[in-house]
Simulated scan of single mutants.
Amino acid sequence: MDSIKVFAPATVANVACGFDIFGFAVDSPGDEIIVRKSDLPGVRIKAIVGDEGRLPKQAERNTAGIAIQTYLKHIESDQGLELILHKKMPLGSGLGSSAASAVAGVFAINELLGRPLKQIDLLPFAMEGERLACGSAHADNVAPSLMGGFVVIRSYNPLDIITISTPAQLFATIVHPEIEVNTKDARHILKNEVSMKNTIIQMGNVAGLIAGLMKPDYDLIGRSMVDVIIEPIRAILIPEFSEVKQAALEAGALGCSISGSGPSMFALSRDQPTALRVGNSMQAAFQAVGIGSELYVSGINQEGPRVLG
């Protein structure tokens, strides 16, 4: 085939206590990309739709473009390509927008060329898109977007990715307020050192969340969704954070925290009706101070990227 269209899902990274090591994929939103073979050498981005002209079309400065370029260099291919990127999720949202583009791009080219690499082996190329976007090649967005499900990054050197089973009735609520937080800024404000006390608390919650997901034990999931290291610092970037979180918990959420670097917030619930009720309550708390928002409710997406045509 000469062209392919691919969807890659948004993701929730960190998942409260798991900074840079936890992430899960959702059904929507996400990004779409069309990749076409070209007789001309190089990777060219013909159009980007839905970004309001904010993203660069130079391949080496675009997360999808750099991921594809790095992939082609690795497999020693000089195949020329044309890309059309459809951004179907907000930029700077904390939902892995840059990761979804990178994953869509590298998954699409691998499919187009007959799958010379296994899907898991595409991860380092997608991570280069993250390095370009925020200065750090972290995998907590690209790994779940690429592999689907709930992912643990046990190690970065060497890269060691683990997929964790999740309860079938576990639903995520994501509320994206109409404000923007730059990922680089959100990382810059973090402290370089953490106290022994908070490290121990965080390690217990990390272990508890994994155990709660695998047992499954919804109450344990809720008790473990506590972040004493990152959330207290980043919460200041999100207006009404405490009020929105409290609204989620009072509506029945197991837990609530920041999605990635924010400003989106997410909650986990034990069924879809609760997740919808939680979302409505979170939106109402933002609206009370005049902040509009978008609502997404999804199970844990186990599929990852998929071919659309």
Rank of each mutant, 00 (worst) to 15 (best):
G105Y: 03
N198G: 12
D2K: 15
I300V: 15
M1I: 02
S155D: 14
D160Q: 10
M147V: 04
K184P: 06
G50I: 10
P41A: 04
P239K: 07
L276N: 06
E82R: 08
I189F: 13
I300P: 02
S28W: 15
E128P: 05
V26M: 13
Q169W: 01
V49Y: 13
H138G: 09
I200A: 09
V278R: 01
L209Y: 01
G129Y: 00
Q69T: 01
I68D: 09
A47D: 15
R223L: 07
G30N: 06
R115C: 09
L85M: 05
Q272G: 04
P216G: 12
G129W: 00
G299Q: 04
A108E: 06
P29M: 09
F266I: 00
G260V: 04
P177F: 05
A104M: 03
E111L: 10
R270E: 00
E180V: 11
L220R: 05
G290S: 05
G208D: 06
Q169N: 12
G148H: 08
I189W: 12
D219N: 13
I45A: 02
D217F: 06
R54D: 04
N205R: 11
L237S: 05
R61G: 03
Q283R: 14
A10G: 12
I174S: 05
G255Y: 00
Q79A: 10
D140A: 11
G262H: 09
Q119K: 13
I75R: 15
K57G: 01
P158I: 06
L132F: 14
H176D: 02
M1E: 11
E250A: 15
P41E: 05
L112K: 12
I300M: 13
A248G: 07
E178S: 12
I162M: 07
I258P: 02
V26R: 07
Q302N: 09
A253H: 10
